[in-house]
Design a protein around this nucleic acid. Structure first.
Length: 297
DNA sequence: AACATAGGCAACCGCGCTATG
DNA sequence: GCATAGCGCGGTTGCCTATGT
């Protein structure tokens, strides 16, 4: 039996809460040596913990860029909105909130949702039937199947002010390197609500948000057919692979634009953001409508 | 004041994926 | 192709504190 978690099978591993001394040891070790292999960290750092525990402690609590304290209303809205789209994919949601961990968001959601459910027992949320969205249950199934999770249809609490459903997805591979030199960064990247809320989207990849009047199986198809763009982070256009990736990106963009046009979307926004703030993308004050959305990169 | 209960949070567990040999 | 190890993720537990009785 493949030694399940042999890292934790050692006899003297300590468990439970971390003491300040242990924290200090871990911080000192990681900040001087970094972490290549977590399983080696405890021994080298002089800790009676398993590597997994060290990793968790570092990721969720000790790392310097962690953001602690209460969630802001903006963060809360973003979480609610994202949860409506991707469901319980906490790590994915966390990737949109710089400095927040999946664990923190999950805990927050679990507390929050309990309250919400309790409160709403007297006034249940509108059912799908009462919303204006028109789609068949088979389509819903299709979407859930394709996207892997069952999710709420986000009608009530999306970041957008309208009642149209919001869909959002990321390209599979980070594009930061390619986009560094891309003219596309000069487009009217738009995310009105985020801008209004002064939330800086902070994603590991290019993302699209589509607000539609219709339901979305065609978009799912596009997503399914998207080819991962594999370019090392930091690759520039003039370097090997840059052109090809850019071409693929253009093609994807075009497909998406075509689809958006065919769907009479009420709104179509797209934003980029770049890891570690290498490039800041300023969102304009108002959302770019389809008609003014630049079709070319 | 003493106890019970609920909520918030940090940490753990087990599974699945990936890399390596 | 198989075995193994490490890591990341989502679900879950359990401790501590605040609040209620």
């Amino acid at each position: 039996m493949m030694g399940h978690h042999s890292c934790c099978n050692q006899q003297k591993v300590k468990r439970g809460l971390w003491s300040p001394e242990e924290d200090e040891k871990l911080i000192r070790f990681i900040t001087t040596h970094g972490y290549g292999c977590w399983s080696e960290v405890p021994e080298k750092a002089g800790l009676q913990r398993c590597g997994k525990s060290c990793r968790l402690r570092w990721i969720n609590y000790l790392r310097p860029d962690i953001r602690r304290g209460r969630f802001t209303p903006e963060e809360e809205k973003l979480i609610i909105s994202l949860h409506g789209v991707v469901g319980n994919r906490w790590a994915h949601i966390a990737s949109h909130l710089p400095g927040r961990t999946d664990n923190e968001i999950k805990n927050y959601w679990n507390s929050w949702i309990k309250k919400k459910i309790r409160k709403s027992t007297s006034a249940p949320p509108p059912s799908i039937e009462t919303s204006h969205i028109n789609y068949g249950s088979n389509q819903l199934e299709l979407v859930n199947q394709n996207l892997g999770t069952t999710r709420a249809i986000p009608t009530q609490e999306t970041l957008f002010s309208s009642q149209a459903p919001l869909f959002m997805f990321d390209t599979i591979t980070p594009l930061d390197g390619v986009l560094q030199d891309s003219p596309h960064l000069n487009t009217e990247t738009s995310w009105n609500t985020l801008n209004q809320l002064q939330v800086q989207p902070f994603l590991p990849s290019t993302s699209f948000a589509v607000e539609t009047n219709n339901y979305l199986p065609p978009l799912i198809d596009i997503m399914e057919n998207m080819v991962p763009i594999e370019v090392q982070s930091g690759t520039r256009l003039e370097e090997e692979g840059g052109e090809i990736a850019m071409e693929r990106l253009r093609r994807q963009q075009q497909e998406l634009n075509e689809w958006v046009e065919s769907q009479q979307c009420s709104n179509f926004v797209m934003w980029d953001n770049i890891i570690e703030g290498q490039i800041g993308v300023e969102a304009p004050s108002s959302s770019t409508t389809l008609s003014s959305f630049p079709s070319a990169l």
